[in-house]
Design a protein around this nucleic acid. Structure first.
Lengths: 344, 344
DNA sequence: TTGTAAGCGTTATCAT
DNA sequence: ATGATAACGCTTACAA
């Protein structure tokens, strides 16, 4: 194999590599002029520009953003970290976030953290090695080392999907405790006496659950049972959860607050299989307001979070930091809204 | 503002930047030794390694992957292009694909192309500027320029979700025409005489629809009407589609082949609102086999595509090209499966 | 085992 | 308007 190769060293460049140097040579200008033609065409004469563009066309030159980033100390990359990319709640939000930043000339480097702080820490390190110009991450809880790295990176940091008085730098989201309490208020106002919860393995969901249970009992209701799912939220998990609540945890009738619409749908389906009347004998409240929630039969009462607004505001927070200096608003609470439908 | 700064030039480094140079100085070794300690610790003496790690810990040093990529000509970045990131069908597949490659030390640079070839072309260019080590893209149709850029990039290219005899380099997927025909066969075998289609604005879905219609009539069935959705597939679009078929396009009873489960769910919901009996008067077939399909009432007959396998094989194709030479199998047809449930 | 030197392909700075 | 030159922070020879 080795003996067939014409030369073993010296030629690291595989012949085909087109650089600004190549383009410049063809256009009869220096490499810097090519760089200028691309970054600010007005700095180059019309004729030169024409020849350069011709050479680019001819060679199929695509600028090397890696070299550009190293030289300029700006990667034009922005990190987005979400718990799960297959969860529409997060992916739709990232889409809005990304579209906004793409328009501003940035590219998104997306990864998932799996609702796990330790995994988040590792992912953060990997991402920071790419020297992103900013970082958006889901949640306000992070490991100490993650926090240290974030601070040390010296770039804009936005934490989303939650709010705190002490963000690393900026946060855009809503209070999960308040959401839980609001649902409890809603449930009591609607006359439900007994409640249960079905919660995915997600710290923010846990906070909603706990705030719900506390308030619900404070208001004279009875918190009967809770079921916490091990894996990710799914319809199957929701069905299973209701079975457990009914068959093992002594839950009879009342309202069930689920940490996601998918779980709520599962609960609803299981209830229907068992011919339990909704909402008469069992009322169901979801979280997230995904598209299907409004179309279920009965339509699902749930908590709506404006994910588009969240994406926009998070992107704006970053962009503001880029051309501004200190952020004017570094804590943004976008709130939430209980959407009352037929399942309660 | 300018007069406040101690010096205007010379110091491009904002003081805080930690490099291998810094780490080396603290550990009492040269920069290369730090590089070695990180890339291959066995090449460094135990004592030196200890001091280097200490210095890294102390400084919070995070290697600069941009510089590394430029020097090594390997970005350890792999591009993944899908039509839509909010569509679970694609995001779940990308997750598998990404997990596999992450384990191999690569990071995924994900973007969406919006089912649009021109947009895909732009995205490809942006991505190639980051010099990915490989590229995965959805579909086998691309603009001529996109094709040229892909070829010129001289990196492994995998096209997924479709198969062709003439891939750019490798493809992993299934035949959409065959899928359409298989659904037609299934429908005729189950005795349906009249058919309609509801299709999203997606070229591959169009091919399934056309193959379905052709085969269905060849087998003696009657293709009554088709409805093509303008926007993305959704429950609302599905409901709307059935209304149009029923109220405007003269569709009465029979089977409806939808290009996605979401559309099928919409059709089902609209049918139920109208008290149409499923499957007696209206049979429904979806595509994708998302989780909810099995849980609908009646459970949805649909076409299952093994997205995990797709992600795996696509990742393996790339990894194979990395350490192998020419791919052994450059066309992989993973097929599909019709999952017969109660909606037909 | 460690160090020196030469890139990698850009952008920033300073001349012309 | 254009060019020469020095970074940018690494990796890859090659030498010691």
């Amino acid at each position: 194999m080795g003996e067939l190769k014409p030369h073993q060293h010296g030629t690291r460049r595989p012949a085909g590599r087109v650089t600004m140097e190549t383009v410049g040579r063809i256009a009869g200008v220096s490499q810097v002029t090519v760089s200028r033609a691309l970054s600010d065409p007005s700095k180059v004469s019309g004729e030169t520009l024409r020849r350069i563009n011709e050479a680019i066309e001819q060679t199929g030159f695509v600028p090397n953003a890696i070299a550009g980033a190293l030289a300029s100390q700006r990667s034009r990359l922005i990190t987005a970290l979400v718990p799960s990319i297959t969860n529409v709640v997060y992916s739709s939000f990232v889409k809005t976030f990304g579209d906004r930043l793409r328009d501003a000339g940035y590219q998104i480097l997306l990864s998932e953290t799996g609702f796990d702080l330790k995994q988040e820490e590792k992912v953060i390190e990997t991402h920071l090695s790419r020297r992103p110009d900013a970082i958006m991450l889901t949640g306000i809880r992070h490991t100490a080392r993650a926090r240290r790295m974030l601070l040390g990176a010296d770039i804009p940091v936005v934490e989303v999907w939650d709010v705190t008085d002490t963000p690393i730098e900026m946060c855009v989201g809503f209070s999960h405790a308040e959401a839980g309490r609001a649902v409890a208020d809603f449930a009591r106002q609607n006359g439900f006496e007994r409640a249960g919860t079905v919660t995915a393995n997600d710290e923010r969901a846990h906070r909603r659950r706990d705030a719900f249970a506390k308030r619900f009992t404070e208001l004279g209701g009875q918190q009967i049972a809770e079921h916490n799912c091990a894996g990710p939220a799914s319809i199957a998990a929701g069905r299973d959860a209701l079975s457990v609540l009914l068959d093992e945890k002594g839950f009879g009738t009342g309202v069930i607050f689920c940490s996601s619409d998918a779980l709520a749908q599962g609960v609803m389906i299981e209830a229907q299989k068992r011919a339990i009347s909704i909402p008469r004998d069992l009322a169901i409240i979801g979280f997230g307001d995904q598209e299907f929630a409004a179309h279920l039969e009965p339509a699902l009462t749930t908590v709506h979070v404006d994910r588009d607004q969240l994406g926009q505001r998070a992107a704006d927070a970053i962009l503001g930091r880029f051309d501004g200096g200190a952020p004017t608003e570094n804590i943004v609470d976008i709130g939430f809204e209980i959407v009352a439908r037929m399942s309660t």
